[in-house]
Amino acid sequence: MEHLQFEFECSGNREDSQQATLSGVVSSGNLEVMLENADLNGLCRINVSTSAQGFGEIWQAVLNDFVARYNLANLQISINDGGATPAVVCLRLDQAMEEYLEIST
């Protein structure tokens, strides 16, 4: 197992107090993504636990894109990964965010 942490400075804000949302399932080639509010001084923090070792740079690239798209501050994202491809990771992140934003409005 490899544990990675990424932090991004973000400026976007939204209504608070919604509950955590979880999308996806941890299985081979798949992952679960949890989104929660957190008091992170404007950061978006992403923690990844993955069974695939040595893909830190690819995670960095995928997450850069994702954060650039939504730019949400004070957001904690936690990922349990069963070795998903970048495409699957992107898809799940978008689904998770969609659900998260739906609940917050």
Binding site: Q19, L22, V26, M34, N80, D81
Partner: peptide
């Protein structure tokens, strides 16, 4: 006991298996 509590199995990590928050 929702996923935000992160109550996962402690027995998987030592075997190199990913856990789930549920």
């Amino acid at each position: 006991i929702g996923p935000a509590e992160r109550i996962a199995s402690p027995h998987l990590e030592p075997l190199g298996q990913p856990c789930s928050f549920n």
